[in-house]
Write a protein that binds this DNA or RNA. Structure first.
Lengths: 356, 356
DNA sequence: TCTTATTTCGTGTACGTACACGAAGATTTC
DNA sequence: GAAATCTTCGTGTACGTACACGAAATAAGA
């Protein structure tokens, strides 16, 4: 087995043609006779040509622009993690001559989502990454992009009916099912409470809906007698939340199992800590700093977490390869692991997020 | 902020010198006046130079050779996972002109380890990756390599007293502690059993020792009354193992909690399945195919798993950057996450291992 | 037949870095 | 003070690919 790498020059010699012709064949450009094209293809096959990505990227003078659309966020919130992951992924993409711009929208306002899409269109990006919340508008956007030949990658959640290059994220339904098995698997209680977030306007296509379905499906098939209470918190109204929880737990002192499907389990953890309540079993999602603290202190028993960094790295990478080499990712739907964090393994998990 | 990238040519112009001189400064080569060196450094600082890795790698005609030393393995065994991870990491390293050779040794024979080290030395590699089992011999090897200027990376476990460039693996002690909390955290039993592997020769410096210490330390501080039985299985002697377990469970029908610290929990899972025993709680390590099956079927409750692929990718990457650019990894000891797998999240975990 | 399109292909340059070679200049030696 | 040595630096070429430009070769039009 020869250790030397096969280059276009070798292909050209083998095919009895010039480098230029080989190059044209490789890039599916016009101006090459069918006979020559065949010769080149055969030579490539025979010699086992592989592209030298370093040389290719070096010679490629184009500059690509990716536009990323996701919900706006405050400090310490879930979407900030995603934003950081984008920055991290952008670093890996510099060798592709790629830069990434992020646009945000108010996730509670459909109008704002539409406005953000218009901004995105005005930006004329070569590729788009989107964390979708609104189904119909996302489908329409995907049609627009398809028409323009602009590739679209979904992260975090996807809209199956849309036209997209790839999706990287956890399986939503299964993540709810997992939460149920962690919360209810050992000693099933009689009733539990699900703390949700108050949303303005009837947003039926919220991704955490699928997660709740996974949870309730587990309950339906394993614990049909279980009673699930639903209570609604407000993201930024601590007084309201505390009053609500005081009332709830006052009326239901027997309830010891709590679940949230959004990333704000720390709202409840804070309450439990301040009130000094013991013996509750709490399951939540996403690796926010405040959630990490809640796990460390033992208030939250299980935290279900997705690998945001990996998802974005792979999403950006899929677009980079598409832009630079025209290659399509092997899988369209990439369901990524759901990690279970408890007090004893959370430290080494969060440490990893510091560099890679 | 100028979007153009700064090149050596820009540095040369700014410093009033030639590209050659700039190049010499960058590679710490001789033949440049102190005055000029200073000018170049200043220009680099001022313009914010960053190396174009594509161009650098393309121009670098050297070919590097990494030698990887790890225990020999049969099909479906733990070290086969590591071997596969090496192959996967090698693919990422082709752009660095790096190839990897793997040497294996009988992990139960110190002599064979020494012999493998001699073979490694004869190979004259530019870098070494090792999964160490024998402490003293590893330290000696690290001295030899240090003297030759050959970098050494530990994976899987490390020998702290050795001289090494970096380590990528899980924290062994903590992984045992985690196992204890998963097995014993909810309803502590009176006694449990730890199935171990019979080893020839008194190998005290086996890495799983630290794992067992983590487990027993948890027990000592949380459940000092707990009785731990130790039983010894043989890797390839099913009849012996079954007889042993028949005898053990016959004499101790009350024991329902089982732990293993090696990767062979499937030996016990097979027994449990064949005997049709119910109600046991089993915790094991490592994502072997047979272990995955044991989790799926519900026999093994928790499987603690490390990200072998990531560990090797990062290990190889650290060496690649050292060889090609002379850069040292930011952290020497990289403790990587311990993942907890149960029936409800193992599918999407193992799926990930197919491509990336 | 000569010009004008059209197809097909080869040559040359660029990308940014690495390094060999050799030319100036500075320093030493006798 | 000339030759020899050493220090310091600039030039040139190579890495493998991308693409513009223009040259042949062929076909079409008059």
């Amino acid at each position: 087995m020869s250790t030397k790498k096969v280059t276009v020059k070798d292909i050209a010699r083998q095919a009895g043609l010039s480098i230029g012709t080989v190059d044209r064949v490789m890039h599916n450009r016009s101006g090459v006779a069918e006979e020559s094209r065949r010769k080149v293809m055969e030579a490539m096959e025979e010699l086992g040509y592989t592209l030298n990505t370093n040389a290719s990227l070096l010679a490629n003078k184009k500059h690509y622009h990716i536009c990323c659309l996701l919900p706006s966020f405050g400090s310490g919130e879930y979407w900030e993690l995603v934003d950081k992951a984008i920055e991290s992924a952008e670093k890996d993409a510099v060798s592709y001559n790629i830069s990434i711009d992020t646009l945000t929208y108010d996730q509670f306002s459909r109008e704002d989502f539409v406005a953000a899409i218009e901004k995105l269109k005005a930006n004329l990006p070569q590729a788009v990454i989107i964390a979708p919340i609104y189904r119909d508008e996302t489908i329409e956007l995907s049609r627009y992009l398809k028409e323009k030949g602009i590739p679209l990658v979904f992260i975090d959640s996807k809209v199956s009916e849309a036209d997209y290059l790839a999706y990287y994220g956890i399986p939503m339904w299964e993540s709810g099912y997992l939460a149920a098995s962690l919360l209810l698997g050992d000693e099933p209680p009689q009733s539990i409470v699900n703390f949700r977030i108050e949303r303005g306007g009837g947003i039926a296509d919220n991704p955490t809906l699928a997660r709740r379905h996974g949870f309730t499906d587990y309950v339906a098939s394993n614990l049909p007698e279980l009673r699930i209470y639903n209570e609604f918190l407000r993201p930024y109204d601590k007084a309201h939340n505390f009053a609500l929880m005081d009332k709830f737990f006052g009326e239901h002192p027997d309830i010891r199992h709590i679940v949230t499907f959004n990333s704000r389990v720390h709202l409840i953890a804070d309450y439990i800590r301040e009130r000094g309540i013991k013996g509750l079993r709490l399951v939540g999602f996403d690796i926010l700093d405040q959630n990490i603290e809640a796990v460390r202190s033992g208030v939250v028993k299980y935290l279900i977490v997705q690998r945001t960094q990996v998802q974005l790295r792979r999403g950006v990478n899929a677009l980079a390869e598409w832009l630079a080499f025209g290659t399509t990712p092997p899988l369209r739907d990439n369901f990524m692991p759901m990690d279970i964090l408890i007090k004893e393994n959370i430290n080494f998990y969060s440490e990893m997020y510091k560099d890679h």
